[in-house]
Design a protein around this nucleic acid. Structure first.
Lengths: 195, 195
DNA sequence: TCTTGTGAAATGCTTCACAGCA
DNA sequence: TGCTGTGAAGCATTTCACAAGA
């Protein structure tokens, strides 16, 4: 979030105060100063933080100082949409491959990125240096593709399947559960008691 | 999450203990008992909670005791995929309409659900009783479509645009920021220091 | 004078421990 | 005996308040 706000400001000014960042992000200024202190960024009292230094430092902490090769597993509706989204929007995470098991999809491409058969994962992952996988397969297939991907050397996952995936503790799995998000929305619908 | 686990168990058994739910969800048993106490569910000491009572009670608290009509705003790649996903997967949240401004899309349909022009939002929302909107439009358009939707009477949003949306405090906006999720993944990629 | 950097206080959340009931 | 229900304790996070430095 800091990177996003800083990118907007980068051309216009050289420094930014924690108070101004607070206004733009919605976090408190103390929180921001604590965060920055935590990853070693230091500001100038009476002035603020240098934007370019901050950007470099945050990128370095997040591991975004070079592009990170990624793959999308599952080239159905959601997988395809996510691939398009990531390819076009994100410069830091580069989607270099898709995987699927459907022979009608394998061999085609999305925005110039090839769809490989899931069995080719080990070789393709190694060849392209892929480090991140976005999982968008049907729930019953999720555990299996993650197992395969872990064996191929991937340790970071963004999982869209609504299932709890088991993996070694050094594997990071970040879940986005659309069903859960949708259902929890119902709670906030006002006037539920109306006819 | 409780509903998902309970649905799996519903046929097989009548009661469930907080300890067993803890095993299946990953939350602690005390947490679960506190949650259940909080929304008025009560179990039987020595036995556990009745699954059917629990389901009814959770649905009632969440406002899922009847289907909730919803719409998807933005029928691009992501919007279309989300619509398909919601229509097919979710029985509690019913996507009854899509909205877009592109005349090539307006008038067509996705899985039998019509794509309307965004200008028709007020009348369509009123006619179909829509209470939830899933926002999947380009960032610059997000604030505008939310304003329109709020005026049409929608108070709950699931926003996929990477922008902070301003709205009255009685409007609930839940954000899913794919860029942020992706970028934060980079942090968990192991061996960042390798060549 | 303005803003950082940070211990201390306050607040919120989770876990513990056990009384109470079927 | 087994499991719920819940105050109390422990732990974590956030906010406050202010000293220190440009």
């Amino acid at each position: 979030m800091y990177l996003r706000v800083l990118a907007e400001l980068a051309g216009r000014q050289r420094e930014i105060t924690s108070a101004e960042l607070a206004r733009r992000t919605g976090y408190s200024s103390e929180q921001i100063r604590k965060d920055f202190a935590c990853f070693g960024a230091l500001g100038t009292r009476g002035v603020g933080y240098r934007i370019d230094v901050l950007q470099r430092q945050i990128r370095s902490v997040l591991g975004l100082d070079r592009p990170v090769p990624a793959a999308v597993i599952g080239a159905g509706n959601l997988g395809t949409a996510l691939a398009r989204y990531s390819i076009l929007q994100d410069r830091d995470i580069q989607v270099l491959a898709l995987f699927d098991v459907d022979p009608r999809r394998v061999g085609t491409e999305i925005e110039g990125v090839a769809i490989h058969h899931a069995e080719e994962m080990p070789s393709v992952v190694r060849r392209l240096g892929i480090r991140i996988a976005i999982v968008a397969v049907p729930p019953p297939a999720a555990q299996g593709v993650v197992d395969t991907a872990v064996e191929a050397g991937i340790t970071a996952f963004l999982n869209f399947s609504p299932v709890k995936i088991q993996a070694a503790e050094w594997v990071h799995i970040q879940n986005i559960d659309l069903s859960l998000e949708l259902q929890s929305l119902a709670y906030y619908v006002s006037a539920r008691s109306l006819p």
